[in-house]
C-alpha cells in the first residue's frame, strides 16, 4: 500500500538529484539550462521534505513543499524575465556575456 522504503533511500535519492542539479548549474553556461538546474535542486529539496514527512506521518513536510512550490514559481517568473532581458541586451543566452558589472 504505502511504500515502506527506508528513510535513507529517499534522502539519498534527494541528495543525488540535488547533486545533479548543482552539477548542471556549475557546468552549463546557457542561462536557461542553469535555471532548469535550479528547478531540479528546488524539487529535490521538496522531495527530502516529503520523505521526512512520510517517515513520521506528519503533515508539515507537505506544507513545506507547498511553500517551496510557491517560491519556485516566483523565482522562475523573475528568472525568465531576466533571461529575456539578457537576450535582448546581449543577443545571446551565454551567462558569461553578463560577467562584467557596471560601476
Amino acid at each position: 500500500m504505502i511504500a515502506t522504503v527506508p528513510l535513507e533511500h529517499g534522502l539519498i535519492l534527494a541528495a543525488a538529484l540535488f547533486a545533479l542539479g548543482l552539477t548542471g548549474v556549475l557546468v552549463r553556461r546557457n542561462i536557461v539550462f542553469m535555471l532548469m538546474s535550479v528547478e531540479i535542486m528546488l524539487n529535490s529539496v521538496g522531495l527530502a521534505f516529503i520523505v521526512a514527512g512520510a517517515r513520521w506521518g506528519q503533515v508539515d513536510g507537505q506544507v513545506m513543499f507547498v511553500f517551496i512550490l510557491t517560491m519556485a514559481a516566483a523565482e522562475v517568473s523573475v528568472g525568465l524575465a531576466l533571461v529575456i532581458l539578457l537576450y535582448h541586451r546581449f543577443k545571446t543566452l551565454d551567462a558569461d556575456a553578463a560577467s562584467i558589472m557596471k560601476g
Binding site: I2, A3, G10, L47, I50, A54, Q62, F65, V66
Partner: peptide, 10 residues
C-alpha cells in the same frame, strides 16, 4: 514517488 509515499495531494 510522492504518490507512493502517501502524499497524493502533493
Amino acid at each position: 514517488i510522492f504518490f507512493s509515499l502517501g502524499a497524493p495531494f502533493v
